Computed example of a mutant assay.
Amino acid sequence: MSQPARPYRSVLYIPSSNTRAMEKVKTLPVDAIIFDLEDAVAAEEKDNARTTLAGALGAGGFGPRARIVRINGLDTDWGAKDAEAARNMDADAVLLPKVDRAADVDALAEIVGDMPIWAMMETPLGMLNAAEIAAHPRMAGFVMGTNDLAKELGCRFRSDRLPMQTSLQLCLLAARAHGIVAVDGVYNAFKDEDGLRAECEQGRDMGFDGKTLIHPAQVAIANAAFAPTDEEIDLARRQIEAFEEAEAAGKGVAVVDGKIVENLHIVTARQTLSKAEAIAELENA
């Protein structure tokens, strides 16, 4: 199935208990925001954060940015209350942590009604069941929880993320098979721009739609990495033009820059131009 057209290059986590951060994000060029009620909020602040978030979303001002609410797990003291509150919030989706199987999505769907559901993919069981989770009719997006996954795997953090590759690819395959969004995990060293850029490039090369971020300083690098380059846009246009000329001449292939261009390349070229147009529309909104 085709990849989602809406840009999700930069997806910034914001603690829902932090009103200052929720105001600041309105000025940042992020494609999406994850308003976090889970890890970023202390236990004694959970109830207050839920109320604060509902008020902030109700007040609006977040523009075209996708608004995603990450709730606590339904097996916690706060999860069901979070889900019930999220159902009535002015948000685009609800994000469920530690999804192991499609049945977890069923349980949330019973609470949130028609609201789109996203899944944190961060457990070994979740990796093994990625296909059935992605196939759930209510599932709209995957977010890779690489920190929790590393803990569960007992693996070491490496710059090439070799221990993570199977997990990342399983989730990406499942997401692409069912036409949902797939967003890469966070990069913890937020002051390390070179490391972030390298990991963004790796995620983009793999096929992820974008990257989750923990600091505003990471936004520009993610936006650049997951957007089509000027060279890619130019090549896409030339490929389409050459192929259309070849078709008009009764030929099934064209040649651009010494390389064969077939219909499958045109599908990719059109996706590249569509993504570039969607980014331009978002940035000009």
Rank of each mutant, 00 (worst) to 15 (best):
M1F: 08
S2Y: 06
P7Y: 01
S16T: 04
A21T: 04
V25M: 03
T27Y: 03
T27L: 09
V30A: 09
V30G: 02
I33N: 07
F35R: 01
V41P: 06
A42N: 13
E44N: 15
E44W: 13
E44H: 15
E45G: 05
K46G: 12
D47S: 13
T51I: 09
T51E: 09
T52G: 03
R65G: 04
V69I: 12
V69F: 07
N72V: 11
N72K: 10
L74K: 03
D77R: 15
D77P: 13
A80M: 12
D82Q: 00
R87C: 09
R87E: 13
D90Q: 12
D92Q: 00
A93S: 08
K98L: 07
V99Y: 00
A102T: 09
D106P: 01
A119M: 03
L125A: 14
L128D: 13
A130I: 00
I133C: 00
I133R: 00
R138L: 03
A150N: 12
E152H: 15
L153K: 07
C155H: 07
F157I: 14
Q165F: 09
T166M: 14
T166W: 13
S167Q: 12
S167I: 08
Q169N: 13
R176W: 08
A177V: 02
G179W: 06
A182I: 01
A182H: 01
N188Q: 12
A189R: 12
D192W: 04
D194E: 15
L196P: 06
A198P: 01
E201R: 11
R204E: 12
D205I: 09
G210D: 00
K211Y: 02
T212C: 05
L213I: 06
I214P: 09
H215C: 03
Q218G: 06
Q218N: 08
A224W: 08
A225T: 08
F226Y: 09
A227G: 02
P228E: 08
E232K: 01
L235P: 02
E244P: 04
E247S: 15
K251R: 15
G252W: 07
V256I: 05
N263A: 15
T268Y: 12
Q271N: 04
A278Q: 05
L282K: 15
N284F: 11
